[in-house]
Amino acid sequence: MLRIISTRLAQGLLTLLLASIIIFSATEILPGDVAEAILGQSRTEEALAALREEMGLNRPAIVRYFDWLGGMVQGDLGTSLATKRPVADMIENRMWNTLRLALLAAAISVPLSVALGLWSAMRAGGRVDKTLAMTTLALIAVPEFFIGLILMKVFAVELRWFSATANTRPYFDFSENFRALALPVATLSFAVLAHMMRMTRSSVINIFTSPYMEMAALKGLPKRRLVVRHALPNALSPILTVIALNLSYMVSGVIIVETIFGVPGLTRLLVDGVTLRDIPLIQACAMIFGAVYILLNLLADILSIMANPRLRYPK
């Protein structure tokens, strides 16, 4: 099993490397370069050439790629063109905002979706199942920003229970934090809940037809125990995969939620970077999203490998 896990880790690293190549080449293909971006409208050919020389932009792309990659590996994410501050500093506090949002949403949506999925599987075809199916399908179909705006309108504007902006301050106490974060976390949870719940439901239902489920039923066990004890452990692998996909979506895809609720998060930073053509910032953000995505999928794979007794205990 260790060998499978280490192979998988190596694959993860390789994927990350490929991602870095793609990110670097994508920013390379963009019209204009950093020098043009810095000098802006006021550039002259001489100034451009001088700056390029100074920044080493005349070197071949491959050399600059390894330079950049080497910096990344050592934790040097480069210096922002717009603010002249190290990118790492800019990202640090933004990342915390995004991560907090994602972690809170995950802590709520993952257990909830698995529980609802199991409940729905237990009552497959029944009223509970149909109601849940309809609600979650509706949630998938309605765009996030719409849900976010509705929630804001109802709970922040009309009822005034929660705050409409998620901009927290360090001196906030728990209830203030709660008021600030409730709506974005709820919006984000709604967006991912349906997916994970439906996957849990269908993976578990798939297993219902296997002979060992009939065997367990013929032992006189109630449905609840059949689902939780006999079906769930065998359905873990696809459930973990879809959870990982949704969690990585939450980190990189929260742009809409961050925009609506004014969260100063990482995706906002990325968008700002694109507007300002702040190439080192774009590259760093893209690498972080890529790494999170790869890491979460890696984690899901390793967990499903460990959940499989055939791999855990070879013959």
């Binding site: 296997s210 002979p211 060992y212 009939e214 065997m215 367990a216 006999h230 452990p233 065998n234 959940a307 499989n308 007794p309 055939r310």
Partner: peptide
């Protein structure tokens, strides 16, 4: 059952 291999829960 007919097949013990299929009737034991693999997990």
């Amino acid at each position: 059952a007919q097949s013990a291999a299929a009737s034991f829960n693999p997990a």
